[in-house]
Amino acid sequence: MSGRTRPVLVYDGDCGICTKCVSFVERHLSKDIDIVAWQHADLPSLRLSQAECEEAVQWVSSSGAVSSAHIAIGELLKDSGALWWPFGLLLQTPPFRWVASVAYKWIAKNRDRLPGGTPACAMPAHLRPGATRPAADQPEPPAA
């Protein structure tokens, strides 16, 4: 048991699309979750890496189980009550899971070109304005 009492949704705070989606979640879905941008999260305590968070949205259940991408969205929806639960289940059930996986990957790859996307969405996190640390698998930038 992780000691956590509420699940946590971890998203990319530099992404306009992610931020808009989180606003929707805050207005319409479960209030019994914590939502945090990975740039401001204590990733080790959530058992997440920066690379995982750069790749996809993450869901950490109250038991500590981690899900990502479309599966994380499905867990969020299932945890948001009777109205949203069926949609969460569909996202995790074939053939809908396969379609959701392809759609999630396409949106993530093209998020800088979609409505609400920003130029920062196209950049690796360690190169974005205000970046404080390079990704673990990226070399340090050369000294000027």
Rank of each mutant, 00 (worst) to 15 (best):
S23Y: 05
S23M: 04
F24W: 10
V25H: 03
R27I: 05
L29H: 05
S30L: 02
K31I: 02
D32G: 09
D32A: 13
D34I: 09
D34H: 12
I35W: 05
V36P: 09
W38R: 02
Q39N: 08
Q39G: 03
Q39Y: 07
H40P: 00
L43H: 01
P44S: 04
L46S: 04
Q50M: 12
Q50V: 13
E52C: 01
E54T: 11
A56E: 14
V57I: 15
V57F: 05
V57Q: 08
Q58I: 09
Q58M: 12
W59H: 01
W59A: 04
W59M: 11
W59S: 10
V60T: 07
V60H: 07
S63M: 11
G64T: 07
G64L: 11
A65M: 07
A65F: 05
A65G: 09
A65V: 14
V66I: 15
S67P: 00
S67D: 11
S68F: 12
A69S: 14
I71D: 13
I71F: 14
I73G: 00
G74H: 08
E75M: 14
L76H: 09
D79R: 10
D79A: 15
D79H: 15
S80D: 09
S80F: 06
G81Q: 10
A82E: 14
A82R: 14
L83F: 15
W84N: 10
W84R: 11
F87R: 10
G88F: 11
L89G: 12
L89C: 13
L90D: 06
L90M: 15
L90Q: 01
L90K: 11
Q92M: 13
T93K: 11
P94R: 09
P94F: 12
P95L: 07
F96H: 06
W98Y: 13
V99A: 14
A100G: 05
A103S: 12
Y104A: 05
K105E: 12
W106G: 12
W106N: 08
I107R: 08
I107F: 04
A108K: 08
A108T: 00
A108G: 03
K109R: 13
N110A: 11
R111K: 08
D112A: 15
L114V: 04
L114I: 02
L114P: 06
P115I: 01
P115F: 01
G117H: 02
T118L: 15
P119T: 08
A120Q: 11
A120V: 03
C121F: 06
A122K: 06
A122N: 02
P124E: 01
P124M: 03
P124C: 05
A125R: 01
A125D: 06
R128G: 00
R128D: 04
P129N: 01
A131L: 01
A131S: 02
T132L: 04
T132H: 03
R133L: 10
